[in-house]
Design a protein around this nucleic acid. Structure first.
Length: 875
RNA sequence: GGGGGCAUAGCUCAGUUGGUCAGAGCGCAUGCUUCACAUGCAUGAGGUCGUAGGUUCGAGCCCUACUGUCCCCACCA
């Protein structure tokens, strides 16, 4: 089948993906004699649709895995999806709301039924979208964080950590989202500065008209105050410690205590202490044995401890309390104040610090070896600077609140004896209470933080806790590719989990990428409406174009900008590849395509083979360093400039000639370069390369499982490379002469050459004819043999003269030569001053000094030639 | 309050261990209907590499300070 005239990706992408999948190319065959290469995919949420961030997140590892697969590794790219506890639950609740129902009304069992139905319905959607992108992951191993495998791992890990004392239940201050009605971990809270007020309140002493002033940003919490604290070193208040205050409105007696936590300099130096609603106050409360009085319920409404405010919403209550305090004369002043407020990362509601009984993971013992692993470079962050961010988090880590008051998720495997209240943590439902022998238990109502299961992903998906073949062969994985936004949520937790439970790091490299921004550098967001739907882009431009647009020119850790112009540029590049391939294949038709070792190769053939050889090395080296952007850039330069603009043009004289044998040789060389170029390109733009490859007569099978090109010293061809460089320089010079003189590029001209090395020029005459529209190449000993009306270009080692007759403007030519003279003289000056520098001659490497000397000689020669040229014209 | 990124041609960005490194793409100008491609070809204009010092024979590249800008972390009530 012929290749169609234009690049039309929609004609083949789907077909090709189906072929790959049908042939099982994505599924590795475990082979103990070969080296595995493994990547686990960051599991997208089942609530999600593929967005541009996913597209980037998946194109990078896909390029890496395709490269490694072609290099002969046994590659596994393991895909999966995440149950996304809160995100999914919120969606289900919303849907219930539309039906006029609540969670409580339908009950846990029915709710979970609906959640699973949701998963069945939407969980697969993103998978189909990933396939459109060309992701070469092993779908036979598709995992889900709540499938049997992963759930078994979660239970195993929970029980083990509990038995080691690393999971505990405690009543502590946690972040509470009144909207989602669940506890959150510290990582799940996002802080944003908001304009607010600083309320300065008067608290009177017991039986006195005197008062002190405390400042607060959350006046409603005063209902739960159980003390006022000052710094023990604060001379101003030393005498007040131990005195009793009367809490306004509530009329509770509260003491003034001394605690080092208080900053003397800030505010009034006196702090109201609310142990139930502030993490610091909670600590103070513990130290001073204060009561913790909760005044807010789980919905963010004031509770029975709030007296007459009970039932009010927290903000409503704030207003009411401030009004009441003002009326009572308890407000000293109110000043504007920018306040850092925590928000739920899922729903955006303001998070309340609330005292609550939750499950926690004790972090310090887990964090320590995880820090060491990175310090020792067992795990390497790329770019390295993200290791710092990681250390910063890990070294200051606090215990991880893992229980969530939700239904969708891994239910905590803790059971309470109905009789004596004993807690039993076990993988199975317990039979007998170890304490009282009773047989009745109820399971903890809560589920685990979504990230608890994500943390186990690199080994839970491979079969842990069972010692499976997969786990033995593929663990630890090789590289984790993800965005910097989830280093804390995910990367850090996988690292300590892998070390703790597998006794081995989960991956060797962490490749961090940035986020995709719009053309103006803004984050893509729903509210701005500047988001890009990757599926629409794929439908219009093809998956390869989108992929290339995302990875071309990226560097690790940096954000990238997406723009229509860039996208079109990438489409044009692929179109270029398409058409160059068409040209090669058209010229291979009916020809005898031989191995290049059996061909008589021209200088141009050897030149391109040598260039190809270099780019093979460059791509390979960069891909091994995960420098995808550099690999793409080097390749694009080779393909467009060397291969298309030069080599194909250099081949045309022979292809359009009548030497059939020569035509076979040129076609063979073109075909060789094309095949290897396609292979180099395949990891980045897999569809189009596969499609073209299928039309190449000498190519067999799928390019996806073909061997990646290898650098070969035999193909260095140093002499031909230098010769062709000279030829190309002359061609450019002739073109430039014509353009500058205002001659049409198509104007046939004679070319006079003064040179000591005629050989490469003689053998390249056809190139000058074809690429520079040269009539005839004539060698002369000196310029005066040519006559008047010539334009000259002095190159190192050759002088080029073109007689242009009437087109030669003597004045213009003199000016041009003078400009060139100036450039040359600058070069000479530069070289001279360098060589005059004692330090340079004494300390610089010899090759550099010699190079500088050679340059000086060369430019001096050129200078003389230009000078004589100017002289002649002036006379 | 800590920590980090970025600052190079009009725009978006490359510049690996300091020595042809001043680059690419887009845009711009001029010229091309040559049989792969106008989603193209050719030629060209454009930057004292944020500012000020320092190290070095030699600095976009290393060090220090500053300015601008973006981001992350942190309990300042």
């Amino acid at each position: 089948m012929e290749m169609s005239k234009t690049y039309n990706p929609s004609e083949f992408e789907k077909r090709i993906y189906d072929e790959w999948e049908k042939n099982g190319y994505f599924t590795p065959k475990i082979d103990k004699n070969k080296i595995p290469f493994t990547i686990v995919m960051p599991p997208p949420n089942i609530t999600g649709q593929l967005h541009i961030g996913h597209a980037l997140d998946e194109t990078i590892p896909d390029s890496i895995i395709r490269f490694k697969r072609m290099q002969g590794y046994v590659t596994l790219w393991l895909p999966g999806t995440d149950h996304a506890s809160i995100a999914t639950e919120v969606k289900i609740v919303d849907k219930l709301k539309e039906e006029g129902l609540t969670k409580a009304q339908i009950g846990r069992e029915e709710f979970l039924k609906r959640a699973w139905a949701w998963k069945e319905k939407y969980g697969g959607r993103i998978v189909e979208q990933q396939k459109k992108l060309g992701t070469s992951c092993d779908w036979t191993r598709l995992a889900f964080t709540m499938d049997e495998k992963c759930s078994a791992a979660v239970k195993e890990v929970f029980v083990n950590l509990y038995n080691k004392g690393l999971i505990y239940q405690g009543k502590r201050i946690i972040n509470w989202c009144p909207c989602c009605k669940t506890a959150l971990s510290d990582a799940e809270v996002e802080y944003a500065e908001e304009p607010s007020f600083f309320w300065h309140l008067r608290y009177y002493f017991k039986d006195s008209d005197e008062y002190i002033v405390v400042a607060t940003t959350r006046p409603e919490t005063m209902l739960g105050d159980t003390a006022v604290a000052v710094n023990p070193d604060d001379e101003r208040y030393k005498d007040l410690v131990g005195k009793t205050l009367i809490l306004p409105i509530v009329n509770r007696e509260i003491p003034i205590i001394a605690d080092a936590y208080v900053d003397k300099e800030f505010g009034t130096g006196m702090v109201k202490i609310t142990p139930a609603h502030d993490p610091n106050d909670f600590e103070v409360g513990l130290r001073h044995d204060l009561d913790a009085i909760r005044v807010m319920d789980d919905e963010g409404k004031m509770n029975e401890n709030a007296g007459k405010y009970a039932g009010m919403d927290r903000y409503e209550c704030r207003k009411a309390i401030v009004a009441d305090l003002e009326r009572l004369g308890n407000v000293e002043k109110i000043e504007p104040h920018a306040h850092n407020v925590g928000h739920c990362y899922r729903c955006g509601d303001t998070v309340e610090p609330i005292i609550s009984k939750q499950w926690f993971v004790k972090m310090e013992p887990l964090a320590k070896p995880a820090i060491t692993a990175v310090k020792r470079k067992s795990i390497k962050f790329n770019p390295e600077r993200f290791a710092k961010i990681y250390y910063n988090w890990m070294e200051n880590i606090k215990d991880w609140c893992i229980s969530r008051q939700l239904w969708w998720g891994h239910r905590i495997p803790a059971y309470y004896c109905e009789n004596c209240g004993e807690t039993v943590v076990s993988k199975e439902f317990p039979k007998v209470c170890p304490k009282c022998g009773c047989e009745k238990f109820r399971q903890d109502e809560d589920v685990l933080d979504t990230w608890f299961s994500s943390a186990l992903w690199p080994f839970s998906t491979l079969g842990y806790p069972n010692d499976t073949e997969d786990l033995k062969y593929f663990y630890p994985t090789d590289v984790l590719v993800t965005g910097y936004d989830i280093i804390f949520f995910w990367v850090a937790r996988m690292i300590f989990s892998g070390i703790e439970h597998m006794k081995r790091i989960p991956f060797k490299d962490v490749l961090i990428h940035g986020i995709v921004r719009d053309s103006q550098g803004r984050k893509m967001s729903k509210s701005l409406g500047n988001g890009i739907d990757p599926i629409e882009v794929i439908d219009e431009y093809g998956a390869d174009t989108l992929r290339y647009c995302l990875i071309n020119g990226i560097s690790a850790g940096s954000d990238i900008r997406y723009s229509q112009e860039k996208l079109e540029g990438c489409r044009n590049y692929i179109n270029k590849i398409w058409n160059a391939s068409r040209f090669v294949l058209m010229n291979c038709e009916g020809r005898k395509i031989k191995d290049i070792s059996e061909c008589k190769l021209s200088a141009a053939d050897k030149w391109i083979i040598s260039k190809l050889n270099s780019v093979i090395r460059e791509v390979t080296v960069n891909m091994e360093k995960y420098e995808i952007g550099l690999a793409c850039a080097a390749l694009q330069d080779f393909v467009w400039s060397d291969f298309c603009d030069w080599y194909i043009e250099l081949c045309k004289p022979a292809l359009y000639g009548d030497d059939e044998k020569k035509k076979d040789d040129v076609a063979s060389s073109l075909c060789y370069v094309l095949i290897n170029t396609l292979k180099l390109l395949h990891p980045f733009i897999p569809f189009v390369t596969e499609e073209i490859y299928s039309h190449v007569p000498t190519a067999k099978g799928s390019i996806m499982v073909s061997e990646f090109p290898k650098y070969d010293l035999k193909h260095a061809y140093k002499k031909e490379r230098a010769d062709m460089g000279k030829i190309m320089e002359i061609i450019k010079a002739v073109r430039a002469i014509k353009t500058e003189a205002g001659a049409a590029p198509s104007a046939k001209v004679d070319m006079y050459v003064v040179t000591e090395n005629k050989r490469p020029i003689i053998s390249s005459e056809t190139y000058f004819k074809r690429l520079a529209n040269v009539n005839e190449v004539k060698f002369v000993a000196a310029k005066d043999e040519i006559g008047e009306k010539v334009v000259s270009k002095i190159l190192g080692g050759a002088e080029i003269y073109i007689p242009l007759g009437e087109l030669v403007d003597t004045e213009k030519e003199i000016a041009r030569l003078k400009a060139e003279l100036e450039k040359t003289e600058n070069e000479i000056k530069r070289a001279e001053s360098k060589l005059a520098n004692q330090g340079f001659v004494a300390k610089a490497p010899k090759a550099l000094i010699d190079g500088e000397r050679e340059k000086l000689v060369k430019f001096n020669e050129i200078k003389q030639k230009i000078l004589s040229g100017i002289n002649e014209l002036t006379n």
